[in-house]
Design a protein around this nucleic acid. Structure first.
Length: 942
DNA sequence: TTCTCCCGCCATTCA
DNA sequence: TGAATGGCGGGAGAA
C-alpha cells in the first residue's frame, strides 16, 4: 500500500495531471450550476479553458515566472494548470463571495490582469491560487457558513443545519465543517442536535456565552496564567540556559496545573450537546480550546493574546520536552483554526505584537466588551431553565457524572439544575465519598470515582456544611435559588473541591472587578458576570491534592455554572505534585530564593516533596515569623476569615512574602509579587475568580505592600520574577500553588500549616483556608478580572484601589468566606473563623500596585489600549484612571525608567506583568533581565 | 526561514 | 460494520 504521505502526494500529482481536464469540466459545470456567478465567470472560465489548454504553452513560456512568483497572480497563471486551481476556480465561481474576493484580490494585486476576460482568467487563476488557500481557509468557510444563517434566528423557525448540505453547498469536506461547527459550538452559536445535524442559534446566545466564558476564565485565572507565561517567556528569553531550564520546568508545572484545571467545557443550558457521543467524546478539545482561547481574550486586559501564550496555556500538561514542542505546534495549528473562525465572527482580529525579539502573532479581541449580566440570567436559570448555565465538563468520570446528573434529562436544553438533580448529585457524591473514602483517589472530583477517596469525611463534612450554608444563603440571598442549589449540588457532587458559592453579591460583582485591573472587565459587563453567579458554584478540581475539595463560590455574574473538572485536570494522584500554578510556584520559589529565607529553601525543598506541604512549610514559617512579627496588614488579613478562605497557597505565598520582606531580602526576591504573580493574582484572578483571588491577592498585596514599604526600592515593583534567582528545585517544590487556583492541599501540608499556624495563630487560620482560597479568588468573590491584575490595573487601582479594596473585600468575603471558614473550622483546619478575608486585597493591591505613574515611569509598556479597556474602566473611576494611564503606558513603552518590560505579554492584561517586570525604580538587580518588550500591537492586516 | 493552516489519515465513537 | 467525528501532524503556500 502506499504510504499515506505518498498516497497523498500521488493524489496531488494525479490531480495536477488531470487538472486541465477537470478544470474544463468543472468550469463547464460551474457555469451550468452557478448561473449567477457563473455568468460572469463563465466567460472567464471559458477563456480559461482555452488558456488552460494553452497553458502548457503559456506555462512553458511563463513557467519560469509563474513558478517563481507563485504567490501572486503570476502563480495563478501557473496554477491554472493545476487541477486544484481549476477546482478552486470553479468553487470560487460558485460562491459570489469568493469571486468577489478573487476579483478584489486580482484588482488589488494587479490592475493589469483585472481587465478583461483574459485578465479575468488570469485573475481568476491568480486569485484562485491566491485564493486557493485562502478560499479554503476556515475563516472564509466560516464566513460563507455564517452568511447562510441569520445572526439572530427566529426560534420559531427551523434552524437545523445539515452538515452534509452545508458541506455540499460550501464545497468543502465535512471535516472542515466539523472544525467550524466545533468552534461555533464552543460559542453556543450552534448546538448539536443529532448526527449530522446542528441547531443554529446564531448570536442569540453569544453574549451570554461570552459572559460565562469570561467568568469562567476569571475563575480559572487565565489572566494570571497568561501573565505568568509571559513572564516566563520573557525570563526564558533572557535567562541563561540553566535558568531557562528551570523556567521551563516551572512552566511545565504551571502548565500542567493549568491544563488540568483548564479541561472543561462550558455549556449553556440550552446549548448542551445532545449527542451523547459528543458529550462523552473525549475530544471536544477543539471546543474547549476555543472556549479557552476566548476566555483568554475576555480575561486579559489588553485584549490581545499571542498565540504562543495561548498555546501554552492551552497546553496545560505540556512540558518542555520535544513532545511538548510538538504539542505546542499542534496547539498552534488548532489555534489558527479557531482564530480563523473567530475572525470570521469578527470577534478577534489578527495583530502582531512586537517584542524585542521580533513580532509575534497575536490576536486582538474586537468582539463585544460588555456582556449581559449572566447573573441575572443565572438567576433566571432558576427562573428559566433555558438560562445559561455553564457546566464544566471534565472528560473524566466527572464529565459523565455531570452529564448524567445534569445533562441527562434535559441537559441539552437547559441544565437548569433542579433541586432533585442536586439532591441526586449530592446523594451520589455522598455515596462516592463513602466509597471513595480510599485515599487513593486523587482529588479529581467527587464525580470521579476513586478520586474522591481522599476527601472522605472532611469532604463530606465540608460539602454538607457548604450546602447548608449555601442553602441558607441562597434562600436568603439569592434571587436565584436554583442556581444556588445547582451550585450546591455541584459542590455536593464534587466532594473535594466544591465550596459553596454564595450568591454573588451584586455589589461585589461590580466592584469585583477592580477598577483598574478590570480594565478589561467592563464594570458593567463584569458586574453582570461577576455578580450574576449568585449560585454559581465552581468545582475545584480536587486534583491538586486530596486536600480538600472546595466549592468555589463564584459570584461572577453569569449564572451559576458548573465546572466539571477533567479527571486529567484533576490530579489523579494526590501524590502528584499539587498543581500549583506556575504562579504560585514562582512566587514560592522566588521567595525561597530571594528571600529564601534560609529556612525557606530547605523547607521548601522538603516541602516540595510533599506538594502541599511544600508550600505550606514555607508559608508556615513565614506565617509564624510573619504572624508574629507582622502585624502588618498581611497578618491582619491572615487573621481575617477571608484570609482563611484563601487557600493555603495564598497563605503560603503571603507568608513567604512576608518572610522575604522581613528578611529584607526584598532584594532577593526582586518583587515577590512578580514572582508571585501578585499582579496576576490580584489582577486577573480578581477579575474572574475574584473572590478567591482577591484574598490571595489581597494577601499578596499586603505582603507586597509591606515588601514595598520595606523594599520600596526594589520592588518597586515588580521586578521581574526573573530577577530572582531561583533554584530549580525550589521552583519545583513550590509549584505549590498557583495562586488563585485551587490548590489541593495535601492533608499533610495542611497539617503543617495548621501547626505553623498554630504557632502563628492567625497564620494558621490563613493556612487552613488555603482551599478556600481557591474559591474566593476565582469565583468571585472578587470579580476582579485577571486583567485587573494586570499591572496597569494595579497601578490604577492602587490609587483607587483602596476604595475598591474596601468594596471588594466584602464581596470576596461575602460569598464563600463564611462558609469556608465554617467548613474549615469544622474540619479543624481553621482555628478561628474570625479572621476575615483580607478585605484589604484591594487595598493591598492598591498598596502593592505602584501608581500608574510609577508604572509608567517604570517604563511599563502596554499594548495598544484596547477599546475594551476603556469601556470596562468606565465603570469605576479607577478604571478610568487606568485607562488613561494604560494607554499612555501602552503607547510608551517606556519605561521611563525602567527597563521596561514591555510585557509584550501583549495578550496579557495589561500590565500585571509589566508591573512585575517593571522593576519600577529598581530595575536594578533582578530586573536586569527583563528586556523591554515593546508591546506594539500592530493590527494585523491580515 | 517562519508563519499559516490546509489537507486528509486515522483513531475513536456512534448507530 | 460502516458512518460520523474529530485529533493530529505533514507539508505546502504565504509572508
Amino acid at each position: 500500500m502506499l504510504v499515506p504521505d505518498k498516497y497523498v502526494t500521488l493524489k496531488k500529482r494525479w490531480r495536477m495531471s488531470f487538472a486541465a481536464l477537470e478544470n474544463q469540466t468543472l468550469t463547464q459545470q460551474s457555469h451550468s450550476e452557478d448561473d449567477g456567478f457563473v455568468a460572469p465567470r463563465a466567460p472567464v472560465n471559458t477563456q480559461k479553458l482555452p488558456s488552460l489548454c494553452a497553458v502548457p504553452a503559456e506555462s512553458r513560456l511563463t513557467m519560469g515566472p509563474l513558478t517563481t512568483p507563485k504567490k501572486g497572480r503570476e502563480v495563478g497563471s501557473v496554477d491554472p494548470w493545476t487541477p486544484t486551481s481549476n477546482l478552486k476556480m470553479l468553487i470560487s465561481a460558485a460562491s459570489p463571495e469568493i469571486r468577489n474576493r478573487e476579483k478584489e484580490l486580482c484588482m488589488d494585486n494587479d490592475g493589469q490582469e483585472g481587465l478583461d476576460p483574459i485578465q479575468d482568467l488570469e485573475n481568476g487563476e491568480e486569485s484562485e491560487k491566491m485564493i486557493s488557500r485562502k478560499e479554503k481557509s476556515l475563516g472564509l468557510l466560516c464566513h460563507k457558513f455564517l452568511a447562510r444563517y441569520p445572526d439572530y434566528p427566529n426560534p420559531a423557525v427551523n434552524n437545523d443545519i445539515c452538515l452534509d448540505d452545508v458541506a455540499t453547498e460550501l464545497n468543502v469536506e465535512r471535516r472542515r465543517i466539523y472544525d467550524i461547527m466545533n468552534v461555533l459550538e464552543s460559542l453556543h452559536m450552534v448546538s448539536r442536535a443529532a448526527k449530522n445535524r446542528y441547531m443554529w442559534h446564531g448570536r442569540t446566545k453569544l453574549a451570554q456565552t461570552l459572559a460565562i466564558l469570561k467568568q469562567v476564565g476569571e475563575d480559572h485565572r487565565y489572566g494570571q496564567q497568561m501573565q505568568q507565561i509571559r513572564q516566563r517567556l520573557l525570563d526564558k528569553e533572557f535567562d541563561f540556559d540553566g535558568e531557562d531550564r528551570e523556567n521551563e520546568v516551572m512552566i511545565d508545572l504551571e502548565s500542567s496545573e493549568l491544563g488540568q484545571k483548564e479541561l472543561f467545557f462550558v455549556e449553556l443550558p440550552g446549548v448542551e450537546f445532545k449527542a451523547a457521543s459528543v458529550n462523552s467524546r473525549k475530544d471536544k478539545s477543539l471546543r474547549v480550546m476555543s472556549q479557552k482561547f476566548v476566555m483568554l481574550f475576555l480575561v486579559s486586559n489588553p485584549r490581545v493574546v499571542s498565540l504562543d501564550v495561548a498555546a501554552k496555556i492551552l497546553i496545560g500538561e505540556d512540558q518542555v520536552t520535544d513532545q511538548d514542542k510538538n504539542k505546542f505546534k499542534t496547539k498552534v495549528r488548532r489555534l489558527y483554526d479557531i482564530a480563523n473562525v473567530l475572525r470570521s465572527l469578527k470577534l478577534i482580529e489578527k495583530v502582531h505584537v512586537t517584542e524585542e525579539r521580533g513580532r509575534k502573532p497575536a490576536f486582538e479581541w474586537v468582539g463585544p466588551e460588555e456582556f449581559p449580566q449572566v447573573k441575572d440570567s443565572e438567576a433566571a436559570t432558576s427562573e428559566s431553565p433555558s438560562k445559561k448555565r455553564s457546566v464544566l465538563e471534565s472528560r473524566a468520570s466527572l464529565d459523565n457524572c455531570a452529564k448524567n446528573l445534569f445533562s441527562s434529562p434535559e441537559n441539552k436544553r437547559s441544565f437548569t439544575r433542579h433541586p432533585s438533580l442536586i439532591k441526586l448529585a449530592k446523594s451520589i457524591q455522598d455515596d462516592r465519598r463513602k466509597i471513595n473514602s480510599a485515599p487513593s483517589s486523587p482529588v479529581k472530583s467527587v464525580f470521579s470515582d476513586s478520586s474522591n477517596t481522599d476527601f472522605p469525611n472532611k469532604m463530606a463534612q465540608l460539602a454538607a456544611i457548604c450546602k447548608i450554608e449555601l442553602d441558607q444563603e441562597i434562600t436568603t440571598e439569592d434571587p436565584k435559588p436554583a442556581a444556588a442549589e445547582t451550585d450546591i449540588a455541584a459542590t455536593m457532587l464534587q466532594p473535594s473541591t466544591s465550596t459553596a458559592m454564595e450568591p454573588p453579591q451584586p455589589p461585589l460583582l461590580a466592584p469585583t472587578q477592580e477598577p483598574g485591573a478590570d480594565t478589561n472587565v467592563h464594570p458593567a459587563p463584569h458586574t453582570p458576570l461577576a455578580a450574576p453567579p449568585a449560585g454559581s458554584v465552581t468545582y475545584i478540581p480536587a486534583q491538586c491534592s486530596p486536600l480538600i475539595p472546595v466549592l468555589l463560590p463564584q459570584q461572577r455574574g453569569s449564572g451559576p455554572y458548573a465546572v466539571y473538572l477533567h479527571p486529567s485536570s484533576l490530579r489523579p494522584n494526590p501524590l502528584a505534585r499539587p498543581q500549583p500554578t506556575s504562579l504560585a510556584v514562582r512566587s514560592m520559589t522566588f521567595e525561597d530564593k530571594t528571600g529564601q529565607s534560609p529556612t525557606g529553601q530547605s523547607a521548601a525543598k522538603s516541602q516540595l516533596v510533599s506538594r502541599a506541604s511544600d508550600v505550606s512549610p514555607l508559608a508556615l514559617k513565614r506565617l509564624r515569623s510573619d504572624s508574629a512579627s507582622e502585624g502588618s496588614p498581611s497578618k491582619a488579613k491572615r487573621s481575617d476569615p477571608n484570609f482563611k478562605d484563601t487557600s493555603p497557597k495564598l497563605c503560603e505565598i503571603l507568608q513567604a512574602r512576608l518572610k522575604a520582606r522581613r528578611s529584607g531580602q526584598l532584594t532577593n526576591r526582586p518583587s515577590p509579587r512578580a514572582l508571585h504573580l501578585d499582579p496576576e493574582f490580584v489582577n486577573t484572578p480578581g477579575g474572574s475568580a475574584a473572590a478567591s483571588q482577591p484574598l490571595e491577592q489581597s494577601l499578596e498585596v499586603l505582603l507586597d505592600k509591606e515588601d514595598k514599604t520595606a523594599n520600596s526600592d526594589k520592588e518597586g515593583g515588580l521586578t521581574p520574577i526573573r530577577a530572582v534567582p531561583l533554584t530549580p528545585g525550589q521552583l519545583h517544590n513550590e509549584t505549590l500553588v498557583p495562586a488563585g487556583y485551587l490548590i489541593p492541599i495535601s492533608q499533610q501540608s495542611l497539617i503543617g500549616y495548621k501547626e505553623v499556624q498554630a504557632s502563628g495563630g492567625e497564620a494558621n487560620k490563613a493556612s487552613t483556608p488555603t482551599y478556600n482560597i481557591y474559591q474566593t479568588p476565582t469565583a468571585g468573590s472578587r470579580p476582579v478580572p485577571a486583567q485587573e491584575i494586570t499591572p496597569t490595573n494595579f497601578r490604577f487601582h492602587r490609587p483607587a484601589a483602596s476604595p475598591h479594596a474596601t468594596q471588594q473585600p466584602p464581596h470576596l468575603h461575602s460569598p464563600s468566606p463564611a462558609i469556608l471558614n465554617f467548613t474549615l473550622q469544622n474540619l479543624g483546619l481553621i482555628s478561628s473563623p474570625g479572621s476575615a478575608f483580607v478585605t484589604p486585597q484591594t487595598p493591598e493591591r492598591s498598596n502593592t500596585l505602584p501608581s500608574p505613574l510609577t508604572l509608567q515611569q517604570r517604563g511599563m509598556v502596554f499594548i495598544k489600549p484596547v477599546s475594551p479597556v476603556p469601556v470596562q474602566q468606565t465603570a469605576s473611576p479607577h478604571s478610568v484612571a487606568l485607562i488613561s494611564l494604560q494607554q499612555p503606558l501602552m503607547t510608551t513603552p517606556k519605561g521611563t525608567g525602567l527597563p521596561q518590560h514591555s510585557f509584550f505579554h501583549t495578550p496579557v492584561p495589561l500590565s500585571p506583568l509589566a508591573a512585575v517586570v517593571t522593576t519600577g525604580g529598581h530595575p536594578a538587580a533582578k530586573t536586569v533581565y527583563i528586556p523591554q518588550r515593546k508591546l506594539d500591537v500592530t493590527p494585523e492586516d491580515s
